[in-house]
Design a protein around this nucleic acid. Sequence first.
DNA 1: CTAACGTACAACAAGATGGTTGTACATCAG
DNA 2: CTGATGTACAACCATCTTGTTGTACGTTAG
Lengths: 106, 106
Amino acid sequence: MDRIFGALADPTRRDIVARVMRQEASVSALAERYAMTFAAVQRHVAVLERAGLVTKEQRGRERLVRGDVDTIRAATRLLEQYEEIWRGRIGRIEDLLAEPEQGEAR
Amino acid sequence: MDRIFGALADPTRRDIVARVMRQEASVSALAERYAMTFAAVQRHVAVLERAGLVTKEQRGRERLVRGDVDTIRAATRLLEQYEEIWRGRIGRIEDLLAEPEQGEAR
DNA sequence: CTAACGTACAACAAGATGGTTGTACATCAG
DNA sequence: CTGATGTACAACCATCTTGTTGTACGTTAG
């Protein structure tokens, strides 16, 4: 979850996600659309890949980037759980906190 | 959106969100639950507040922290739009990208 | 009034992040 | 084969983040 939300916390990366959800694209095709170097875009894609929001498939010398809707759904589900907590529909908050959370004292 | 997803990209902050969605709590009551100083928790709450995920209300010398479900819903909606793009139900991707995105070239 | 409590914020250090340039290497075109 | 294309990654730098400690200040308890 850290990586998913962290990856989505950047407008360029959200833009890339939207594009590759619609249609797969090579890294260089994506890079053409932003006012930064290819290397910067390539690293944004790497962040998205590490978060599981996109996958890459090699085709010739290109890497086709595709969006992964399952990861989006996982994030959506967590947000919906927060809403359910708010509605009082989740009794034991610990059910949600059972996601690999950290650092609780006492 | 940057701030919302950025705020959610931390397990301590997600934990705080879950707790205050369920029930309001003072900053110091929250701080007791984590293995870090009060100041660190106070700053996590400030990050959440800046993102609009929580609000604070002064009561006596305490500040009661409450979750804001509307902000959660705004984030959920964006994720659902990604899914709709994937389903091919959104024709013009620009509708989504019309959120204050940046840095497009050409 | 005074002491304790709850909060806010500044300064600091260590590490993460986001951009750059440069290099390396595989693949495709001719 | 050779040159151009597409990708990956390292090194570097500026900035942001996340924890710390210390200080300040308003509020409540006694």
